[in-house]
Design a protein around this nucleic acid. Structure first.
Ligand code: SF4
Ligand code: SF4
Lengths: 162, 162
DNA sequence: AGAAATAGGGATATTTTTTGTCCTTAATAG
DNA sequence: CTATTAAGGACAAAAAATATCCCTATTTCT
């Protein structure tokens, strides 16, 4: 069970978009080039972000993406779920229904303990992701990335932002 | 990102094995029939449990599986990891290395903030699974499953245990 | 000793998911 | 009017999950 690579891509793209000046947009092409990713496929991830309402888009030259809300209002969970979907990582196939000893029709009402426990673990994962904001990430990156690289990257992005 | 169905199978099988009297074994055939699962494929899941040292096996007629330790000493995490593997659910493909502004050779030392945060969420998931013991599950099931079904199932298993 | 049942495991096949490409359409800026 | 963009549908390739089949060594029972 491995998350889609699109999750990593989306998080990185959001981190870049978080540094974009108010009102400017960055295109799929620029984001793909910056991260060395296949443009067409990255586009699908960005479309997911768009459908989830996390980013705003415009068309035409100078078009592209910007965040739909402030980085402090955007959580990791929102980004991850936009790309990865909201279905729980444990799905119950209801195998207890096959118990040869069961009364016919049993097992339909409540999910069993196995599923509930697995879902609690899933919730713990989501809780953690919900507790981290995009602004937290940007803060850490700003500290850790060498300032000359940080500046050059910022410059690179600005040159291509519409 | 969905866990393998073998995870559900393994958990259910362990729950059954937990109720097995000291020194007795239950075969793949019985476990597959009880849960309505393909015997050969379930066998792979049980082999994973065996390789992880969670169950003990014997060959021959009356052979099969029993738990290698007490249900109170066996956690959900051990069972899940035996089947699903121990790799983290977020894998870093190091896309920051593609940054056109980077100095050559950058990005090799430490994992970046994105990966660290995702790994923390992964740990939260594992922590939760580690906190639940197989005995906890059995306790809940004993409460929730109608006692006549519980008894019939127990009887069914005993008749087939070697 | 011989027959039957078992776990282990290798080889292979099928199905589903992930990853990726290609092309068309509608909108926008210059 | 042209160039550029996001959106999205159709399709293709690769990887992973889900099986199935078969052979071997071991154990139990007769
Ligand atoms: S016991 Fe729980 S996890 Fe297992 S099949 Fe039933 S509902 Fe699903
Ligand atoms: S920034 Fe982190 S998650 Fe992204 S590619 Fe680099 S190490 Fe991986």
């Amino acid at each position: 069970m491995i998350l889609k690579s699109q999750v990593e891509w989306a998080l990185h793209c959001c981190a870049i978009l978080a540094g974009l000046p108010e009102g400017r947009y960055l295109s799929t092409k620029a984001l793909a080039e910056f991260h060395g990713l296949p443009k067409e496929y990255l586009s699908k991830a960005l479309q997911s972000l768009s459908q989830a309402g996390l980013v705003h888009t415009t068309l035409g030259p100078s078009g592209g993406y910007r965040l739909a809300k402030a980085p402090a209002e955007l959580t990791f969970l929102e980004i991850v779920e936009a790309v990865e979907g909201r279905t729980r990582t444990f799905v119950c196939t209801n195998i207890r229904a096959n118990n040869p000893c069961r009364a016919p029709g049993y097992c339909d009402e409540t999910p069993c303990a196995v599923a509930r426990i697995m879902w609690e673990a899933d919730e713990a994962w989501r809780d953690k992701l919900r507790s981290v904001r995009l602004s937290d990430l940007v803060e850490i990156l700003a500290k850790e990335i060498p300032s000359d690289l940080w500046k050059r990257s910022f410059q690179w992005v600005l040159e291509r932002a519409g």
